[in-house]
Design a protein around this nucleic acid. Structure first.
Lengths: 115, 115
DNA sequence: GACTTATATAAGTATTTTATTATACAATGA
DNA sequence: TCATTGTATAATAAAATACTTATATAAGTC
């Protein structure tokens, strides 16, 4: 069953604004599958740790991801309870599984306790 | 049948960037149903004619709309042949039919030969 | 408690975006 | 052909965005 919870155009715009960035779209593509630790994103993307942190803050403020603090680490995963969840997943589904950028990220994935 | 032509993440980002603006998203919601003349957009939105023109240019450059010149008028409509067409329509489908902004626009709709 | 590690926040900056006003261009009609 | 109408483009300014480096916070370790 496809539950299509309708949203206001304003809400849709807010959601699109957040994911219309290459880093954040790919973060969403990652966390759609499983949770990731911040340090893993830092290893995968070619930007600084604060930049990653700021992207995650935007995603969290928009309610697209949820945060789980365990020890020193913070894990992020898709927030399935978000009003935007269905819209986001529909969009992510348009990305080819063989997408070069995405597979490049996956190839850089490291375990959480990398060091 | 749902034809889901997969795209690169880069392509999806480019598409999202273009429609993650309230004016352009609503223009797409309008032209999804029928063609509109530039002068109609100018009447419906509370921004200047050049601003409308620039939004339309962005939509056209991204291939989301097509232009039809007839007489003095230029008509815009959704480009169904676009690689983004399916993605865009999926997104537009998340907007509530009772959306306040959208209905406000519709209430301001005028015929083409308004004056 | 001091040191380290993981992450967030602050401040600053370069770039991009979106509007505006002014102007150009293209079609219509007297 | 000249004026009008519809639309696009140019120039510019203001605001938003996405980085950077520096620093703060918070948890873990010795």
């Amino acid at each position: 069953m496809v539950t299509s919870t309708k949203q206001t155009s304003r809400e849709v715009v807010e959601c699109l604004k957040v994911i219309s960035d290459p880093t954040r779209l790919l973060i969403m593509k990652l966390v759609e599958q499983k949770e990731y630790c911040v340090c893993q994103f830092v290893d995968m993307f070619a930007i600084s740790q604060p930049a990653i942190s700021q992207h995650l803050r935007k995603l969290k403020q928009a309610g697209l991801v949820k945060e789980d603090r365990r020890g020193q680490w913070r894990y992020y995963s898709i927030d399935e309870s978000s009003v935007h969840s269905h819209l986001v997943k529909g969009i992510l589904n348009h990305i080819d599984k063989e997408d070069e950028q995405f597979n490049l990220l996956l190839s850089k994935e490291t375990p959480v306790n990398c060091k």
